[in-house]
Every structure is written in structure tokens, then in C-alpha cells.
Nucleic acid binder design. Structure first.
Lengths: 163, 163
DNA sequence: GCAGTATTGTTGTCATTCATAACAATACTT
DNA sequence: AAGTATTGTTATGAATGACAACAATACTGC
């Protein structure tokens, strides 16, 4: 009698196609691949957490930059985030329509817009961030531990200097 | 006399708009943001390195998975990479047109394709990987150090279990 | 063996993201 | 004043990703 594969006596029917784990092969040692998978997981969790705020990562980042640098010119904000200025327009349009941010004339340069959060935008960002920390970052720290998170952040920064 | 900012006596004209560093604000503590920036940098470097091979990250990953799991069914390959099967078709079509991979009838299931690399595909992948390690991964290890890279890989794996 | 259901590869379609070119208004340089 | 650069914007196209539908095939329960 062959040794049963499970604890119980009843024979569980194995899926006919042995679902053997797929080997990653060369990918296993490629940092970029592992980095991408991790990033997708984190963004996915971010999305779920921010669903009730209807806020995507890029939108959050714009609000955060404006909040930390009020009056910064539109081109500087997009540049800081690595978003090209053409694509930044629609992004900002939506935030303005939602009354979270506003374009103001930039003092001394009539080409430029100085960006600010509205009062609503500031409150909204604060709420979103609180919720993010309470849920999303909390989950991150659950799997990582807080010392590891700091370690990870520092390693990631070194990579960002690559390109 | 104010202390000169540069070594030379000649006063370099500062850009009139003080290019003060932009504060990241709330983003500074958000893992997802830092992760994304790092991932973009690494992918950018990957792209440059693989330009002469005309190979994008997704294409490389498909070749690597097939190489490590020859005969694996098409749906398993796309599933392993998190690419939905509809979008996987065109991706594989191109690799097949370039004679790097091929679809074969799967034994015992006339619906499925079993995927293999061609001899050309195997040689191509080996070359691409060699080049990648010599240039791309070398640069990565230059900024990271090899112990840090292993540490980073392990931290990233923990994150991937998030979603 | 048969009826209903699930899976596989594929096509088509749509939304999102990203890069590029062009343009008008304005600023800067000389 | 003339030429050049920058800013915000529009338009456009490539690449990516998600979804529904379909035909062929496989599986399940009876």
C-alpha cells in the first residue's frame, strides 16, 4: 500500500495536471523582475486602500508634492515626479475639477502656474494619508517589520541613482 | 566678501530661479513611491542594456520561463508571469516570428500549446543574459554591493506576498 | 453515452499610461 | 529689436493591461 499523501485516510483526488511550481530560471537572480513584482503588489494594495477615496498613486503623489511645496510652478512639480509636462496637464485638470488643487498666476512669470492645494485638498490629503498609514502601511509593516522597512528604503534609494 | 560657492574666483551665474530641492513631503515615508522610482530606474537601465538585443523586460521574462520549464503550457507561462492570457498571445506571436520560441501541440490536450525555445532562442537568451549580467547587474552591484543585493531580494519577496 | 460546465487560445475592444511633436504666449539673451 | 528658450497646452500614436466573447476541446455527473 502506497503511503498516503495527506493525513486523512480518504484519498484526495489530486488535480490530474500536477500543478508543479514553475521555475523562475534566470529571472530568479534578476533584480528588476523581483522589484517589479514587489512594486505591483504594493501598488495593488495601495489601490484597494484608496478606493474609497478614488485616488490613484499618481494623484496622491501630486497632492503630496504640492502640499509640501505650496506655490511651486507646474513644471517643477511634474519634473519632481518624473511625469512629463504634457501628461501632467490632464492629471492636474482632474484634481482642479475636484477642487483639491488650484492653478494660480505665478508671481513674476506670466507663462507659469503656481500650484496650491485648496483647503478641501489639504483636508482630503490628510485624511487619505491617515487612512493609508492605518491600513496600507500597517500591512506593509506587518510583512516587513519596521526596521526592515527603513533598511529597504535605503537600499531602494541607492538604486534610484542608477539612471 | 561672501564666500564663493565654487572653487574658482569667477562668479558663476546662478539660475535666477533658485532651483531649491523639492520636498517629497508625505511621499518620503511611502514605500510604494520609493519602490516605483527604484523600479523605473532599474527598468530604464535594463532597456538601455538590452537595446542592441531589441528585448523588453516582458519578452526576456517569457524566454526565461520557457527555458527553465520547457514544454510548459501557454496558460501556465502567462499565469506564472502575471500576464493575462489574452495579452500573452501577441507577445508570444512576436517571439515565434523571431524564431526564438515555438508553440507545439501539448500531449494529451488538443486545446493547449506546449512552449519551447528554439535552438536559436536558447542561444539568444544565453547571450542576452550574459550581456545583462556583465553590464546591467554589474552596475546594480556597483551601487548596491552584493550582500545588499541579496538582502534586498529577500525584502522584496516579503512584499510580494502582500497582494 | 450525454448534457452541462470549465478551460484554452484567440480576437476584438476599451481604458490607462507614456512619449513626442507642434503651437501660442511669454521670458531671456545679446 | 531679433533670435532663442521655456511654459502650458493640444493632438497623436505606441505600449500596456483588463475584459467580454467565441470556437474547440476537456471534464463532470448522471
Amino acid at each position: 500500500m502506497p503511503a498516503p499523501r495527506r493525513k486523512t485516510e480518504t484519498v484526495e483526488i489530486e488535480t490530474p495536471e500536477e500543478r508543479q511550481p514553475v521555475s523562475l530560471g534566470l529571472l530568479d537572480n534578476l533584480l528588476g523582475y523581483r522589484l517589479r513584482r514587489a512594486q505591483l503588489s504594493v501598488f495593488q494594495d495601495f489601490l484597494v486602500t484608496m478606493k474609497e477615496f478614488d485616488l490613484r498613486p499618481a494623484q496622491f503623489s501630486v497632492l503630496a508634492i504640492i502640499d509640501a511645496n505650496p506655490g511651486l510652478k507646474q513644471s517643477r512639480v511634474s519634473e519632481a515626479l518624473g511625469i512629463n509636462r504634457a501628461n501632467f496637464v490632464a492629471l492636474l485638470d482632474e484634481l482642479e475639477q475636484r477642487k483639491l488643487a488650484r492653478r494660480a498666476p505665478a508671481p513674476g512669470d506670466r507663462r507659469s502656474n503656481a500650484l496650491f492645494l485648496t483647503a478641501k485638498g489639504e483636508a482630503f490629503l490628510k485624511d487619505a494619508y491617515r487612512h493609508l498609514v492605518a491600513q496600507h502601511e500597517k500591512r506593509v509593516e506587518t510583512v516587513l517589520g519596521s526596521a526592515d522597512k527603513q533598511q529597504l528604503l535605503s537600499l531602494l534609494d541607492k538604486l534610484t541613482t542608477l539612471a
